[in-house]
């Protein structure tokens, strides 16, 4: 009798335990899904810090999904449940707004990107800029100018330096700036146009192996964010957008090699 009872309570305990195990992840998910943010791959590192700081200060938590802007855009068009979209360009947030998938009036430039010419295997004595100008390299990596904003900017630089034709056969294209970085980091391309944010902080990089490309040589890399229609009523998402525009967020972005538009003197459109 006594044995039967204790075994019954053991069964009950086990059932409770099982229920907890099954239900726990769903409750965690529900909690984690306060704000779902789709973020262009180049902005991964600052977004991680922004998300942490924001979660510390507010009651909300953030889930970040990384990808190329093109892929994230396609997912949003096909119903992906994101609340916010941080693109690497301006066209895609605008296009979402025009399709009625983003809340009009919420689009803004959250960061300005900067371009860096970088070599992981540069011979001593010359700077990377000289290498680019003299053509003494095998492969030049850049993001695909057809769709990657940092690639379009790199293409501008080559055009403005009159190097478009002579570099054509040496160019290898990354599908995004992260892959472009990987081509140079693995030594497979001796030169590459990467995002300043990818090598920041620059202290650990040899001065000769980088060239901070002047912003006058390419169109400005404006990265826009927008509130998606799906989250039009989300206070959490709006609160995060306000945080991104704050002084504190600007400092985080600057520490990661971006300029915050409100601090750079460049007018927002």
């Amino acid at each position: 009798m006594c044995f039967a009872e204790s075994s019954r309570s053991a069964v009950l305990k086990r059932a409770c335990f099982l229920l907890t195990v099954i239900l726990l992840p769903t409750s965690l998910l529900a909690q984690a899904a306060d704000i779902r943010v789709a973020v262009a791959a180049n902005f991964a590192r600052p977004m991680k810090v922004l998300a942490e700081q924001f979660s510390e200060d507010s009651a909300y938590t953030l889930t970040v999904s990384l990808g190329s802007s093109g892929k994230l855009y396609a997912q949003i068009v096909h119903g992906a449940p994101f609340d916010l979209f941080f693109s690497a360009d301006q066209e895609k947030p605008l296009a979402l707004e025009q399709r009625g998938l983003a809340q009009s009036g919420t689009r803004f430039t959250y960061a300005l990107g900067a371009l860096l010419l970088w070599s992981g295997s540069k011979p001593a004595g010359t700077s990377v800029k000289e290498l680019l100008l003299t053509g003494e390299f095998q492969r030049l990596a850049l993001a695909n100018p057809r769709f990657a904003p940092y690639g379009t900017a790199a293409d501008d630089v080559l055009q403005n330096l009159g190097l478009l034709e002579q570099t054509r056969s040496k160019r290898v294209l990354g599908e995004n700036i992260a892959q472009t970085f990987q081509f140079v980091a693995s030594g497979n391309a001796d030169l590459g146009f990467v995002a300043l944010s990818q090598l920041t902080p620059l202290e650990s990089v040899a001065a000769q192996s980088i060239w901070r490309v002047p912003a006058t040589l390419h169109r400005t890399i404006r990265q826009d964010a927008v509130l998606l229609a799906h989250a039009a009523d989300s206070d959490a998402a709006r609160e995060f957008l306000t945080f991104v525009r704050s002084e504190r967020a600007a400092r985080i972005m600057e520490a990661h090699g971006y300029r915050a538009p409100s601090h750079s003197g460049i007018q927002q459109q």
Partner: peptide, 26 residues
């Protein structure tokens, strides 16, 4: 191919990569 190709026309840009590039370019 995507990881080691570098999307060079006529050299490493095969059909699957070309499709991917089209999608990325919307």
């Amino acid at each position: 191919v995507l990881m080691i190709g570098g999307s060079i026309p006529g050299e490493t840009r095969v059909v699957s990569v070309e499709i991917y590039d089209h999608v990325e370019a919307l």
